[in-house]
Simulated scan of single mutants.
Amino acid sequence: MSEAARPTGLLTIDEAAEYLHVPARWVADAVRARKVRCTRIGKHVRFRIEHLEELIAAGEQPATAEVVPIARGRRRSKL
C-alpha cells in the first residue's frame, strides 16, 4: 500500500481486515486469541497501523537459498 493510500488513525476490525486482505472474522478471532495487538476503547476494538505492521512482520518467512528436492519413490524401512 502506498503512503498516500495508507489509512491514518485507528482502524476498525473491518478496516483492519481490508488492510490485511483477510476476512473480518479472522481478525476478530486473532483478537480473541491475543495474536494481534489492539487498543480497546470501551467495548470497541481498534488497531493502529503499527499493530498490523507487527503482525505482518511476525509472519514473514525467510527465503532459503538451498532447494531441497522432494524424495519420491522412497520405500519404508523394513523394521
Rank of each mutant, 00 (worst) to 15 (best):
K43S: 14
A33M: 13
A71G: 02
W26M: 15
K35I: 01
R46W: 03
I41T: 11
K43L: 03
V31Y: 13
K78H: 10
A5L: 13
D29H: 10
L20Q: 01
R25M: 11
T12K: 10
A33W: 01
A65D: 14
A71S: 10
A65Q: 09
L10I: 04
A63L: 12
P7Q: 06
K78G: 13
I41Q: 09
W26G: 02
A57K: 12
R32A: 09
H21V: 14
V67H: 12
I56M: 12
M1H: 07
R40V: 07
A63V: 14
V31P: 02
W26T: 15
V68F: 09
V22D: 07
A30V: 03
R72T: 13
K35Y: 02
R37F: 06
F47A: 04
K35C: 03
L10F: 11
C38H: 15
H44A: 09
R34W: 01
P7N: 04
I70W: 07
R76F: 03
R40I: 07
L55M: 11
D29F: 11
A65H: 03
E18P: 00
R75Y: 05
A24N: 09
G59P: 00
S77W: 05
C38A: 14
P62F: 02
R75T: 08
T8C: 12
E18F: 08
R76I: 04
E60S: 06
A16P: 00
L52P: 07
H21D: 15
W26A: 15
R46F: 11
G73A: 11
G73K: 08
V27E: 00
L11R: 06
K35H: 14
A63S: 09
K43F: 04
T39K: 08
V45E: 02
A33K: 12
R46N: 01
R75F: 04
T12D: 12
T12N: 07
L52R: 06
H21A: 15
P69K: 11
H44G: 01
T39W: 07
E54L: 01
H44R: 09
A58T: 03
R32K: 12
R72W: 10
E50S: 14
K78P: 12
G42N: 04
R46A: 05
R32Y: 03
A63W: 05
R32D: 07
E66H: 05
G9M: 04
C38S: 13
P69F: 10
P23M: 11
M1T: 11
R6P: 00
A24Q: 11
R48G: 02
G59T: 06
E18S: 14
E50L: 04
T64N: 10
H21S: 15
A57E: 14
R46H: 08
